[in-house]
Structures are given as structure tokens and as C-alpha cells.
Amino acid sequence: MNRAAIVVCWIMAIGLALFLVIPLLVIAAASFSPTPVFDLPLTGASTRWYGRIGRLDGFWPSLLLSLQIALLSTAISLVSGTLAAIAIARGKLPGAGIFATALVSPLMMPGLVLGIALLQGFRAVGFTAPWATLLVAHLVITLPYVARTMIAGLARFDFTLIEAARTLGCTYPGSVLRVMVPALAPSFLIAGIFSFLASFDNYPVSIFLADVRTKTLPIRMLQYIEEAPDPTLAALSTLILLGTVILLFVSDRVVGLHRMAGTSD
């Protein structure tokens, strides 16, 4: 490759990485600001904003709700999405390609459109319980992530492995549990993480289904920023960021090390 071209590409790679990371660094820095208004250069550091997170109005119910919805919708999506992916990848389902596209289609739709469509749809059938509508809506958000990852994972899975396990003394369900599930563990983990994160930080769909008592964390955070824009929100964002990084790091270690050592049980 031409030397100048390499230099241009290097600059691009480094520049883009900074472009993506700098806002995150800024918010982390802002969270330690000693004054209510974040200003550069920093004149000291303080952790008092972290202490205030828990005292934010309605913070704990919103956090709990977001965790509930994200975990439940991820769990339901993982089971149902995997079964659907098996049908598509393996079950000789007529028109499997169409079903696969349909399962992944919410990914390509703007969240706002999805939110309005779900609101209208739920109203039309008289389904208005806020918690339940949020859960169903978040299934629409999380299923595509699971379906996409599991269809890809299953496409690479050799179903002869199940036959091998059966001839070695496993029942059919036993073979699925002892061979298919662990062999697909990386796919499950990736699908689960993306599904959880997509649900946890969703705003455009949730906003149409939330009411005064049922507000997810992203909705609550936007409300805080309108009411009192002080570094408490930056502190909360930094914690979420930290949580996400730990989650990704740990799962990479778990699956990665597991694969490297080649051990199970």
C-alpha cells in the first residue's frame, strides 16, 4: 500500500477513535466537577454528585423498572428467539428467509415509528397496562438482536454434534443441554448482552408507553436534565458506562478464557 495512503488511514483510525471516546471522557470528568456548572479547566475534584444520585426524585423505581424490563425481555427473547432461529436455520421452514427478515426488521425501523405503531396497536386492542405494554414493546426491541445473533450462530452449528451425543448415550433433550447449549454459549452471551443493553437504554419506544408512575431510567434521566442540569446526571451516566464496560469485559473473559482453556463443566 502507498505510504501516504497508510498515513491517511492511520489518521482516520486514531481520529475516529478519539471522536468516539472523548465525549465519554468529558462526561466522566464532569461527574467529578466540584461546582454545579461544569467548567474547564477543572479546579478540583469532588464525588458529592455520586452521593446525590440515590436521592434523585423517582430514581430507584425507575432503575428497578428498567432492570426488570431489560432482564425479562432479554430472557423471553433468548428462549423464544432461539427456538425461532432453530426453525429458520434448521427446520426446513418454507419461506425461512422471509421469516428471518421479519424477525430482524424492527432493527431497521426508526424507534419513533415503532413507538407510535405499538401505542396505536395496543390502544386498538385495549391493551393499556403500562408495565405489560412496556415489556411487550421491549420484546419487539430485543427479539431482533437475539434472532440475528442466534440465526448466525446456528448456521455455523453442526447438528451432527447432537447425533454424536445421542450415540454416546445422551437422550435428545440431554444432547441439546450438554452439547448444543454450551457450543452456542458465545452466541447466547452476545445476544443476551446486546438485547439487555438495547432494552435498558431505549427511549424512543418507551416514551410512548410510559405514564407518570411507570417511567424507565432513560425517560427519568431526560426529565432530570430538563429540570436541573447539574453533574448528578453525569455521575449517573458514568456509572452506567462503567457497568457496561465491566459487563463486556467480564463476558469476553468468561467466553474467551473458557474457549482458550477448552474446559467446561
Partner: peptide, 10 residues
């Protein structure tokens, strides 16, 4: 088996 069908996680 032709593909050996060895368990990749073991």
C-alpha cells in the same frame, strides 16, 4: 462421523 462431530467446547 464424516465431519467428526467433535464437541468444540470440550
Amino acid at each position: 462421523f464424516q465431519s467428526y462431530a467433535l464437541f468444540p467446547h470440550l
